[in-house]
């Protein structure tokens, strides 16, 4: 799915990540943890080709990301759903239209019944016609998750998705991600919240990756 071999990345000559070797296994739930500023977000951005590695080899769904055209990158992103801590929406469109946006830009018809089901799954049926600025933090994150999965992507990346949420809301969001994983989706969640990782691991088998000193390590029992 995503394979990195000795990947490095730096900003302005300063290397932030180095010798990253990683294979995201299909159908697995992954956590990516590490202290703030360690490069979790950068690693996720590499995964959806928002950044390109400065060294090493990286493939996404079998294709060298460095060789992808701009259309190729767009096509790659249709196979990857991304949820950010501060996910942006098109504020002039209602929630339902924002959720359907990936279908719209992909030129696909919107199945209204499926859209209603999706809104119901994330608990936003009542907010279908609301504009995004009127949503609470938890509602925004659930809307972001719904938008991320509407194209039925193979991989879901979440960058600190619970960063602005209280514990109950965080767990509610994690439940949705667990459901997606159980339905066969590969999930990678970047978080520095170890309690969240422990609670999730109690419900689903998860692989925990840790970034420290610019390199990637497999974490385990020490969590």
């Amino acid at each position: 799915m995503i394979e990195m071999r000795d990947v490095g990345f730096g900003y302005g000559g300063t290397e932030l990540l180095s010798n990253m070797t990683l294979t995201l296994q299909s159908g697995m739930f992954h956590f990516l943890t590490g202290p703030s500023g360690s490069g979790k977000t950068t690693l996720l951005r590499l995964c959806y080709a928002d950044l390109l590695p400065t060294t090493g080899q990286m493939t996404a769904f079998g294709e060298d990301v460095r060789q992808l055209s701009r259309d190729g990158i767009a096509d790659l992103r249709r196979r990857i759903g991304v949820v950010h801590q501060d996910t942006q929406f098109l504020d002039h469109l209602p929630v339902a239209e924002n959720l359907a946006l990936p279908l719209t830009v992909a030129g696909q018809e919107v199945d209204m019944e499926a859209l209603r089901d999706l809104l119901g799954w994330v608990g936003l049926t009542q907010h279908a016609r609301a504009l995004p600025p009127s949503l609470s933090g938890g509602e925004r994150q659930r809307a972001a998750l719904a938008r991320a999965v509407i194209l039925s992507p193979d991989l879901i990346l979440a960058d600190e998705p619970t960063g602005n949420l209280d514990w109950d809301m965080s767990m509610r969001l994690m439940q949705l991600l667990i459901e997606l994983n159980k339905s066969g989706k590969t999930v990678l969640v970047a978080t520095h919240d170890l309690n969240l990782i422990r609670s999730t691991k109690a419900q689903v088998s998860a692989r925990v990756l840790r970034i420290a000193n610019g390199t990637l390590q497999l974490a385990g029992a020490d969590l």
């Binding site: 959806y48 928002d50 701009r70 259309d71 767009a74 096509d75 790659l76 992103r77 249709r78 991304v82 942006q88 929406f89 098109l90 946006l101 990936p102 830009v105 992909a106 030129g107 938008r147 194209l151």
Partner: peptide, 16 residues
Amino acid sequence: QVIRVLRLIGARDITI
């Protein structure tokens, strides 16, 4: 910002 959101959800340049 709109353009960036659209690119992130897989919009091609031609669509935007």
